[in-house]
Amino acid sequence: AGKAFLHSHSYAGNPLACRAALATLDIFRDEPVLERNRALAAYLAARLAPLADHPHVAEVRQTGLIAAVEVVADKATRTPFPAHERRGLRARLDALARGVVLRPLGEVIYTMPPYCTTLEEIDLIVDAIASGVSVACR
């Protein structure tokens, strides 16, 4: 009927993608995005820190707002759980039930909240990770 919304690839000069990119650059120019992200990352680190003491958490890693929690069968030896048990998936499913999307890569549970996240949302994410780790390691 000639009413299709046509577009092209974002790397090919797509006007819609270019407009979105320009709007994003405006936000970075006009708002303290990086300063806010540093504060959010520090808060995320503080909230995640207690997980390092969990008997099945080998490591908590973080770069900015990207965080990962590695789950193992034995913390002292870093012995992994058997892969077929899919412990990371168990954590993901528990988090989904709480309204949080986590990404397990094997037994490493990742989160990468958007720049517009709030402290309350970080609390929700970390609580879901903590619950997911407990459920996955039963």
Rank of each mutant, 00 (worst) to 15 (best):
16 L>S: 08
17 A>D: 09
18 C>F: 13
19 R>D: 11
19 R>Q: 13
20 A>L: 14
20 A>H: 03
21 A>H: 12
22 L>G: 03
22 L>V: 09
23 A>N: 07
23 A>M: 05
24 T>V: 09
24 T>H: 05
25 L>F: 13
26 D>Y: 09
27 I>R: 12
27 I>T: 05
27 I>V: 13
28 F>G: 03
29 R>Q: 15
29 R>C: 01
31 E>W: 05
31 E>M: 08
31 E>I: 02
31 E>K: 10
32 P>Q: 12
33 V>E: 06
33 V>I: 15
33 V>D: 02
33 V>M: 08
34 L>I: 06
35 E>Q: 11
35 E>H: 14
36 R>P: 12
37 N>A: 15
39 A>S: 11
39 A>R: 07
40 L>K: 04
41 A>G: 10
41 A>Q: 05
41 A>H: 08
42 A>R: 11
43 Y>Q: 03
44 L>I: 00
45 A>M: 00
47 R>F: 13
49 A>K: 09
50 P>W: 02
52 A>I: 02
53 D>I: 05
53 D>L: 03
54 H>S: 15
54 H>Q: 12
55 P>Y: 03
56 H>I: 03
57 V>R: 08
58 A>W: 09
58 A>C: 14
58 A>S: 05
58 A>Q: 11
58 A>K: 14
59 E>G: 01
60 V>G: 00
61 R>Q: 02
62 Q>S: 12
63 T>C: 06
63 T>F: 15
63 T>Y: 10
64 G>K: 01
66 I>L: 10
67 A>Q: 00
67 A>E: 00
68 A>G: 15
68 A>E: 11
72 V>Q: 11
73 A>C: 10
73 A>Q: 13
73 A>W: 04
74 D>G: 09
74 D>I: 09
75 K>M: 08
76 A>M: 06
76 A>N: 08
78 R>Q: 06
79 T>W: 04
79 T>Q: 15
79 T>I: 07
79 T>D: 07
81 F>H: 05
81 F>E: 04
81 F>I: 15
82 P>I: 03
82 P>L: 02
83 A>C: 08
84 H>S: 08
85 E>N: 08
85 E>Y: 03
86 R>P: 01
86 R>E: 01
87 R>Q: 12
87 R>C: 07
88 G>T: 04
89 L>Y: 12
89 L>M: 13
91 A>Q: 07
92 R>K: 12
92 R>Y: 05
92 R>P: 01
93 L>E: 03
94 D>P: 02
95 A>C: 11
95 A>M: 04
95 A>I: 04
95 A>F: 00
96 L>T: 08
98 R>K: 06
98 R>V: 09
98 R>S: 07
98 R>P: 03
99 G>A: 14
99 G>N: 06
100 V>M: 07
100 V>L: 14
100 V>N: 11
101 V>C: 14
101 V>Y: 10
101 V>F: 15
102 L>R: 03
104 P>V: 10
105 L>K: 07
106 G>P: 02
107 E>I: 10
109 I>N: 02
109 I>Y: 01
109 I>K: 00
109 I>D: 00
110 Y>D: 06
111 T>V: 10
111 T>S: 03
111 T>D: 01
